[in-house]
Design a protein around this nucleic acid. Structure first.
Lengths: 159, 159
DNA sequence: ATGGGTGCAAACGATTTGCAACACG
DNA sequence: CGTGTTGCAAATCGTTTGCACCCAT
């Protein structure tokens, strides 16, 4: 599984790595795409198109939002990126290659907790057995109340 | 759990029941709201605002989409309705009171399979234990490939 | 009668698309 | 060079909101 974009590696390395990833995926390694890829590896976890746009825009001022979306689409098609709709208006994008995990979303404070995929395997197995349905969800979101908010129950803790 | 809106009952009964539900929730029983409620009970399962709009609009031509949305919001706040974002652009609404269940969404043909909540309990328990996180998700969507599409794998079966 | 509810129209935010200019390979 | 990409601007789509009028209570 090795960290695809060398999460810890130096920026230049990430750059070269990005170029290779794009080429391997049969995509042209344009500066825009490389940057989006780097942005994804920099903001590991989950990012909205808007956040990516800002990150990338900071180092390539001319870039257009539409390009970011088109790149994310291409990367998703190439299997390099996954999209997750956490139900909060904006889709979250994430690099594939990081350990599979799902999310617990706190409805009070918006906190995100990651749950390793392993916890879901039994359920997925059962679903496969009982319904013949093969889950491909790389990201699942479960809404609820996080430990923190559970304590100060009535507290206002909005996002 | 008794069928709140008497799923099998006659329309008039559903009507009276709807009025009572609204009043009990401290809401005015306007014809619009009653109809939205009836629409929800008629199209048991999950409906988009647009679908509801059409159903209601057929019997109360003047009604406005904004009203449907506002009603759904009020009903949700009152705990009578749940909203689920299946990640397909439009949110799905459903009456609370029907048996809890989650959804398997086929990415190929868009088919929806319902999974009883029971299947998720072990997972939810584990999450509560390990993360102290209390899931409140009434609806979870798991994407994947349904049995049908799994067979004619390459088939075009788009939505 | 009176305040919550409605219709209408315009605003919104995320995402998509048509098209001409452009640059990677 | 030629095709895949980009930037720009306008279009979409689901949903929300401001406001004046109206009806359920």
């Amino acid at each position: 599984m090795a960290d695809i974009l060398g999460s810890g590696a130096a920026p230049e390395a990430a750059h070269a790595e990005s170029v290779r990833l794009l080429r391997d995926a049969g995509l042209r390694a344009t500066p825009q795409r490389v940057l989006v890829l780097e942005a994804l590896s920099a903001n590991a976890g989950h990012v909205t198109a808007d956040t990516l746009m800002r990150w990338v825009s900071a180092r390539l001022p001319g870039i257009n939002l539409a390009t970011v979306y088109r790149t994310l689409e291409a990367l998703t098609a190439a299997g390099l990126v996954t999209q997750t709709d956490l139900g909060a208006g904006a889709v979250h994008y994430e690099l594939v290659g990081d350990a599979q995990h799902h999310h617990l979303v706190c409805q009070q404070c918006g906190a995100l907790i990651e749950v390793p995929d392993a916890a879901f395997l039994p359920l997925f197995e059962q679903i496969k057995r009982e319904f013949g349905f093969r889950p491909t969800s790389t990201h699942l979101a479960i809404f609820g109340v996080c430990p923190g908010c559970a304590q100060h129950a009535g507290r206002d803790g909005q996002r």
